[in-house]
Design a protein around this nucleic acid. Structure first.
Lengths: 169, 169
DNA sequence: CCGCGATATGAGAATGACTATCACTATAGG
DNA sequence: CCTATAGTGATAGTCATTCTCATATCGCGG
């Protein structure tokens, strides 16, 4: 396991170590070169920001974390990085698109926990039991509806600690 | 078979019978009156359209199905119906918000199958096994991250029949 | 080291889904 | 029937996201 959190089950997905970080940029460069794209300073900044945040981030969070990358460049590069399977778009609970590193780069299949109050999204690992049930369901759905199901996304919706404390609402 | 599809497992959620349809409008009227809202002709049109389509629908689909309801009215009423727990917003795979009747009205807890190609979203029932695993996961997540998880949303992503046939892509 | 063609950048304009505004209309209920 | 209250709908505004294009930078052959 990557950052080896130890507890393993349904825990917050861990942050990359420095060594993994170096490895990460190599992989990104490879993925980009496959599509005749350069790994420029701005793109590196964005990837670094994504890795540092360790959770699906909004454009606002990204341009803040990636110093000196303007909005238009961030959007364009996020789109390119998405085409190269470096980045995945995550539909937020609020109306904000969020971005995270693809699972082949972050290294772990995971799902999301969403705060319905502030829109915060964090990663969460799954259990083998859940995954087995999901795969089984996907197969049944595909059979029943003629869909070719290739992927599943799970969102646990609730309220984060700070929102629960701040507003009673 | 009225609302009960028989096959039961991971099957397409069934359409309401005429009797259930009458019942539906009664429930909507009740939910609205609780919040001092009227069940007007336009709102009835929208609810009818949602029930008829039987899957998460975009604004475009709704104004087309609900004859004579202009865009602004549709948006406003969808928002009001949302506050009254009559409709639920569903974040589409493409950038389009979709709307469906709430589970207490459509009568069945279900998940969604999304076509990554054309954006079509259809309902799909779950299995007890999956639900048990989901609840278990939610509990673990809540414990690990301090989140108060109250709901889960599952999306199976793939390709619908017509998209698979039309474009090879 | 120089230059050239291709690619990336970034500031600002354009797009488009969604929301707010507001004069007008319809409804409830005394 | 009259008045208060709520709903309607055309239009204007908002704002995230995308497009445009002149400029800057990169890779690479000479």
């Amino acid at each position: 396991m990557g950052g080896t959190s130890g507890s393993g089950y349904a825990d917050k997905v861990s942050r990359p170590s420095p060594a993994e970080d170096r490895e990460l940029h190599g992989q990104v460069a490879l993925l980009l070169s496959t599509r005749d794209q350069r790994y420029t300073a701005q793109r590196r900044q964005i990837v670094r920001a994504l890795a540092k945040l360790g959770r699906p981030a909004t454009i606002g969070e990204l341009v803040e974390a990636a110093t000196g990358v303007p909005l238009s460049t961030a959007y364009r590069n996020l789109s390119i990085l998405g085409d190269a399977d470096v980045v995945r778009r995550v539909g937020g609970a609020d109306g904000f698109t969020r971005f995270e590193l693809s699972e082949q780069l972050s290294g772990q299949h995971h799902h999301h926990v969403v705060c319905e109050c502030c829109g915060l999204v964090i990663d969460a690992a799954t259990s083998p039991t859940l995954e087995a049930a999901l795969v089984e369901t996907a197969r049944a759905i595909a059979k029943a509806n003629g869909f070719d199901v290739t992927e599943h996304r799970l969102e646990l919706v609730g309220r984060c600690t700070s929102c629960r404390n701040t507003a009673a609402s």
